[in-house]
Design a protein around this nucleic acid. Structure first.
Lengths: 249, 249
DNA sequence: TGATGTGAACATCTTCACAGCG
DNA sequence: CGCTGTGAAGATGTTCACATCA
């Protein structure tokens, strides 16, 4: 029961809770266990499907949907096969039906209550992000420690003082906390939201958060993304400076 | 030479350019090829090392550094072994030396010039992000299409009109573009920056970008992160609604 | 002696190629 | 026939456990 740190994976937003902590067991006794890599792509498919739906497309082949989602068709079919046999051989997938099935699998047929902690530019951007409300995510609170920010109205919500954190989480049943505070505040805030009952954290602060078992942490980190791009830029340009080339083997 | 789309991987910020397009060949003839998963963790190690350095730590064991970075020590050692033998058996790694080696490997010993396109709340947050300047990333321009935004001074830079895009990219040698525009503008903007010579794109817009071969795209997508968290929340709570349980098998 | 570096085992993910079905 | 769904092969990533060496 010792606290664990969010495990960086090969991503900017990395998943906590390795398989050994939360085995992919089907709670109802089966062995469904959708692979993590598939779970991470389902939202992309869902977005592509919504686009098709808006354009009036009723049916889509794995080739078309894969192309819209930026993956190859084999991967798409394998991914969808983990949800069930929702396609029709010789035809493709019914857009509306697939939207429903993926939404249900992702848990988007119910509402999730979110609190955003830290209302700087980033917090404001997040609060105003349309993608929140559009799919089952309801922002129950914006919180900040700065007295001059508290009380401001942003995207239809009034910023509340961080002192209200526990109250808001409990009163609104917040299960997902978005941490957009400065780095130094992130861990203390994380500890508080977890203590108050939050079990999922989306962390924008550039720190590795430590959380108890059973709490999921994903992180989004601009600086890491840029550094990964820099690595590839450098490789395109010819690798690290020549004078050090032979250091490794 | 056909355009390809950014491939979503298991991440919010996913890497473009699968191995078949840019094989991990050492440009100088070797076979170094640091694994992508390792590259994605190096920035995390680097951050942890900077923290240790500031606290005056001179030497660190794989166990300690791994703990600070939120990974296990075997993974850390394997990752570092791809860079070379920079540790001392029985002792550990010299913090300063390792900082330098990782920085060099990531291409942070040189400066990268960045342009941020789209100066909404998100663009402002990015422009003000300290992590930019602190490590080899210089913001050469903030651009926006909105007349009332153009001319504003933000974090020491004046917002310029999107018409200046090509000029700024060429004059400043921008190699990384950060796209923080609305979804509808992202692909056209991406096409323009690529045409002007940019070879790395960090995309915050919720769309799959299509780019020519040789251009790297990574994406950061709040909505996808939340949906992944929702999936795990749902799993903790007992899986998709019971009445549909038997649909799959 | 004690920690690194690494081969080997294991696990996960991707791609291939085609069986099987509407 | 044309497409999905999927075993099998291949590639990549992780962990183990210990040989190796300062």
């Amino acid at each position: 029961m010792s606290p664990r740190q969010a495990q960086p994976s090969d991503t900017a937003a990395s998943r906590d809770t390795p398989a050994r902590d939360l085995p992919h067991r089907d709670v109802r006794g089966g062995v469904k266990g959708i692979p993590e890599a598939t779970v991470a792509r389902l939202p992309v498919y869902l977005r592509a499907l919504h686009g098709l739906k808006e354009r009036g497309v009723m049916t889509v082949s794995s080739e078309e949907l894969a192309s819209a989602a930026g993956v190859n068709s084999a991967k798409l079919r394998k991914d969808l096969s983990h949800l069930g046999s929702y396609g029709t051989r010789g035809v493709g997938y019914e857009v509306e039906y697939l939207v429903y099935q993926i939404s249900r699998e992702l848990g988007l047929t119910q509402d999730w209550v979110v609190a955003i902690i830290g209302v700087g530019n980033l917090g404001r951007a997040l609060a105003g992000y349309g993608g929140f409300a559009s799919r089952g995510f309801r922002v129950a609170g914006l919180l900040d420690a700065d007295a001059s920010t508290v009380g401001q109205r942003i995207s239809g919500l009034t910023v509340e003082h961080i002192d209200q954190l526990e109250t808001i989480i409990k009163d609104h049943g917040v299960s997902i906390a978005v941490i957009a505070t400065p780095a130094s505040a992130a861990q203390p805030v994380c500890d508080r939201v977890v203590a108050a009952g939050v079990t999922s954290v989306l962390n924008f602060a550039p720190v590795v958060l430590t959380v108890p078992e059973g709490v999921d942490v994903r992180k989004v980190d601009l600086s890491i993304e840029l550094q990964i791009l820099a690595f590839h830029e450098q490789r395109k340009a010819g690798g690290p400076h020549e004078e050090y080339v032979e250091v490794h083997q």
